[in-house]
Design a binder for these strands. Sequence first.
DNA 1: CCGTATCCATTACGATACTG
DNA 2: CAGTATCGTAATGGATACGG
Lengths: 143, 143
Amino acid sequence: MVTKQQSVPDIFQENCLSRQVLQLIADQWTPLVIAALNDGTMRFGQLLKRIGGISRKMLTQTLRAMERNGLVRRVVYPVVPPVVEYTLTPLGQTLVEPMKALRDWAYGHLQEVAQARTAYDQRDHTPLQDAVASLVQQREKSL
Amino acid sequence: MVTKQQSVPDIFQENCLSRQVLQLIADQWTPLVIAALNDGTMRFGQLLKRIGGISRKMLTQTLRAMERNGLVRRVVYPVVPPVVEYTLTPLGQTLVEPMKALRDWAYGHLQEVAQARTAYDQRDHTPLQDAVASLVQQREKSL
DNA sequence: CCGTATCCATTACGATACTG
DNA sequence: CAGTATCGTAATGGATACGG
């Protein structure tokens, strides 16, 4: 029996399938659509209003991609004017938790990130200064 | 005592800070750099080799952004030729788990996504067919 | 070795107008 | 209402050459 102890395949390899899948969900809008649809089925227009700053085009594109990848189900009611509903599939629901973890991380570390950014922007970043800073840091560690 | 029961702020609002932070980490390369650096400190060239398909430019860009946001520490050794090491900061380490969850999701649902895609591509997607499909689905549910 | 600078091609995206 | 089509612009990203 061959036990391939490889819980993670080589995500560092180009053309790795899992990397491709990862890239399907690690974009600007997918996390927000997941969050929105986690509250229940929504129509196109509702999503458009709910997710501030998204354009018709991007919402359509994102939803289409998600549908294609099996994350959402799209139901078209043949009435006029048309009604189209979007719902998370069971597969899509498995993404809710990981995505929530990411959003929570973002929310939980707002200040730290903001501070880091301010600090970074105040420092010099000439090659020389970078090196000196590293030296100082080195010295401090050895004390 | 005012208890603001708002574990998640309004991520749906444009210009929401947590959304901005989210977008810093939900890109193509950041998850991979996190994963790579989780194995320990690495030099620029090592990262470049490890992360297949990334270009010098993108790696530099990603690392700079991560440094600015406090996720990685960059240490420059003032030797020639230069040696530059990158390490996850404590803040960056808090991202390891959520990111791993995402990667695991991707790996764990490879087949499902692939199947969904194949199925989607085989279906018709003329507006009429979409509506008919929805009708059929509706009827099946009521049986 | 670790970048930056430049050029260039491709894509992404928003705005708008149009259709079933 | 829920898109699609078209356009123009902006951002992205690779390749290459050069610099400290």
